[in-house]
Nucleic acid binder design. Structure first.
Lengths: 243, 243
DNA sequence: CTGGGGCGTTTTGCCATCGTAACGACAATA
DNA sequence: TATTGTCGTTACGATGGCAAAACGCCCCAG
């Protein structure tokens, strides 16, 4: 693994200069291990920290007054987490580790210095934040206008494609490490209905499962059912300032 | 009106330097009038332009293969539109004017120069993009986990609060300028059901209407019903680089 | 002034999708 | 053995979609 998980991730998009790499590495000087289920940030806490996720999985979510939960995003190694605290003094969302994980917290003032010193990194962060926004809008359209089955299909494809960004060994199967309840809370369904859909998709030979591992058997049809488009292919960052 | 609608908007958050203001003004050198219903950007078009909205209303949306529409966001004067084209070469969403409007297109290379030259503006854009992300997650939670009535309530409150940012004359009533079908397409409901909810809320004296104008009669209860929190109050941008 | 056409809203009846509640099976952990 | 967490399964019913039609309003042409 590179010294900086985050730099390694960014370097997949743009060639980074040495100085930029070193600066990004400094964000990860304080790795912290957290156990599955550990609360990293609680909604409404006063926060001044952001995180780079180095290992494991983390989710952000909110709990509504009636106790129901909406998972906002699942994060994978190399992801930049908690950018909401750049603008709000109280966290608008909670962060919990979905598996044992390693996160690297850093203060938002460290981010400020980074943005001042490396305009290109600033631009890059701006872009990634826009990519996340688009990912949100995709899910918004899924929740607002597609069936339960379509949501499950697109969710699986999205997780799959995102995992593949950093883990090239993945070809057609992956470990979701999410309970069906967590899947449901991500796409606005109950665990019961997620289960219905998954079993249905298994019967139709769209996917198969064995002890938690999911294999995508017919991606073309899954993409069709889920109205899914892989956004990662169409990125264009050539217009960025040169390093 | 200030020379730059966008600078005026940003200045509500942070004091801008003269140089910054002038740079922002340059983004609006090419105002363009568009009529209600006009397509400003079509999904999958190759795009290199972004926009500042100076007057009127614009929406971004996607159409799913079955013909249904999800409105992703409604934009008001002073908003920065189309940031998705900073990272994708093909537009992931369409833009249409909801009313007669004035938009100011500028090339993404102009944005790049701005980001290079004014790190603080870059940071500010990064922050605003995060604010929009949070706004998306709020709606995501609404679509995923709240009832039709809650969605309508929170949608009305959100429009209300966003309009009030730039128009201080608004106290408790506003012109939505959206059809019920458009409201439905924003919050994942049919126009029929939006109508049901609106009439119900009118009967319960939560809101009242007269020729398109909506008055919020009981904001406290609306906030409760919609699980709404006004994010605009809690912003903290003091940590930004000094101009 | 009158009649029509277009657009948005209102209303209704029907019913599919999906949520709720409840319970059993099973595996991992203590 | 007891416990906890996840998955699988069922019966029942509410929420909200769908289709269709009528209504009101505004604008324009005759």
């Amino acid at each position: 693994m590179a010294k900086s998980c985050f730099a390694a991730r960014l370097a997949k998009q743009v060639a980074l200069s040495d100085a930029e790499c070193r600066a990004l590495e400094r964000l990860e000087e304080n790795p912290r291990k957290v156990r599955r289920g550990a609360m990293i940030q609680r909604v409404n806490d006063t926060v001044t920290e952001l995180f780079v996720l180095r290992e494991g999985r983390v989710m952000s979510f909110v709990i509504l007054p009636d106790g129901s939960r909406q998972i906002l995003r699942v994060y994978f190694p190399g992801d930049f987490i908690g950018s909401a605290s750049t603008i709000y003094s109280k966290a608008p969302e909670s962060l919990v580790a979905l598996s044992d994980a390693v996160v690297c917290p850093f203060d938002k003032h460290a981010l400020r210095r980074l943005l001042e010193e490396f305009p290109r990194v600033a631009a890059l962060l701006f872009l990634l934040s826009n990519a996340e926004r688009v990912s949100m809008t995709d899910r918004l359209a899924a929740l607002g206008r597609t069936s339960a089955k379509a949501r499950v299909a697109s969710f699986l494809l999205d997780m799959f494609d995102r995992l593949r960004i950093t883990d090239e060994s993945i070809t057609d199967s992956f470990d979701l490490k999410l309970t069906q309840e967590e899947i449901g809370d991500s796409i606005g369904l109950t665990s019961v209905h997620v289960n219905r859909m998954i079993r249905q998709m298994e019967q139709e030979a769209l996917i198969s499962r064995s002890n938690g591992r999911i294999t995508l058997l017919d991606m073309a049809r899954l993409e069709e059912i889920g109205h899914y488009t892989n956004r990662h292919k169409d990125m264009d960052l050539d217009w960025l300032p040169v390093g």
